[in-house]
């Protein structure tokens, strides 16, 4: 083949590759939350092995990033499913609608507890939500209607019963969904125990939110990155520090770290499932209804995910650290999924 012919052939191949239209997919494409990732991938793997469908591809993009991709269009070149460690926002539903994604099926899959843990050693610490708020908020109340920059440096300054160690909490950065949930459930939960702040919610919502959700930046709260394994390692090295991370990491590392009791409730599987443990959030995924029947296997994948074998109390997802919904809720959601009933906000 002459050089010229070779060049011609190479150019043709390259042009063909570039000009090729979006290739039809034969596997489900899932994006979204890194918290739901371990569960979604487990189901995907089993689904791929036990059926004739291709194993779905699961990307870890974060809840916000996943919903953005999901809502970017209705075509088959967009993801079919997005995982989220929080509920979809109305602004995101609007974005979806703008881009032609109208029928979204919502599936709530279970709970994830957020724990405040330290290295094993002395007995676990008992905290209340108010104490967590006072330890970690940027501004704290100094009287009726007054706030001051957080003055606490030691745990026993907040409550004399707490240990006399420096407040040092390692947790995820603001980009993380875990951090959002922690701020909403733990900090805001402690914040509104002050009556005048609770009253403020109605009058000035944004001031209320900034007071209750802003984490201190003077070094007591250390942003330790998105990797929860790293936080566990750091806690091992520093017995005085506490860490904020997901329940599954506590379960896997129970020989190294222990969870603090919050409001008198320990972060244990049954207690989180019953809703007694106060810092627990719901996990979801969202499906494009229009893709059902277009991309093969979506219906079967949904059936696998919502089977008792997977998300039930003794299912394989519970082994992976997912805290199951109650029996009633499970059958409700499974029914909704089966009929593909669209999301209502």
């Amino acid at each position: 083949m002459s050089v010229r012919l070779k060049t011609l052939a190479a150019t043709t191949v390259l042009t063909a590759a570039i000009a090729a239209p979006a290739i039809a997919r034969d596997q489900i494409n899932i994006v979204g939350s890194s918290t739901v990732f371990p569960f979604s991938t487990t189901v995907a793997e089993r689904f791929g092995k036990s059926t004739d469908f291709a194993t779905p591809i699961v990307e870890s993009t974060g809840s916000g990033g996943g919903l953005k991709l999901f809502c970017s269009g209705a075509g088959v070149d967009t993801p079919d499913i997005t995982n989220a460690s929080r509920r979809i926002k109305s602004s995101e539903v609007e974005l979806c609608a703008e881009n032609g994604v109208n029928d979204i099926v919502e599936v709530k899959i279970g709970f994830d507890g957020i724990v405040l843990a330290n290295a094993v050693g002395d007995a676990p610490v008992e905290l209340t939500l108010q104490e967590i708020f006072l330890a970690l908020a940027k501004d704290v109340p100094s009287g009726e209607g007054e706030t001051q920059p957080n003055p606490y440096t030691m745990w026993n300054e907040i409550n004399p019963d707490l240990p006399a160690v420096k407040i040092e909490v390692l947790g995820p950065p603001p980009t993380s969904g875990t951090r959002d949930a922690f701020a909403e459930l733990a900090l805001e939960g402690g914040c509104k125990t002050f009556d005048w702040i609770k009253a403020m919610k109605k009058e000035d919502k944004s001031a209320y939110k900034s007071l209750c959700h802003t984490v201190r930046e003077d070094g007591a709260y250390v942003e330790a990155g998105e990797n929860d394994n790293l936080i566990v390692q750091k806690l091992e090295a520093n017995p005085d520090a506490f860490g904020v991370f997901g329940y599954s990491f506590l379960e896997q590392n129970s020989d190294k770290v222990q969870g603090s009791l919050v409001g008198g409730v320990a972060p244990e599987f049954e207690l989180i499932a019953d809703g007694d443990y106060p810092i627990a959030r719901s996990l979801y995924f969202y499906v494009k209804k229009d893709h059902v029947g277009v991309v093969p296997g979506i219906e079967e994948f949904l059936a696998e995910f919502t089977s008792e074998d997977a998300w039930g109390e003794d299912g394989y997802l519970a082994d992976k650290g997912l805290i199951p919904l109650s029996d009633d809720e499970r059958s409700d959601w499974a029914e909704k999924v089966k009929s593909l009933s669209p999301l209502s906000m």
Partner: peptide
Amino acid sequence: IGMVAFIVD
């Protein structure tokens, strides 16, 4: 570009 993904095959 979506290569941070769980891929079995």
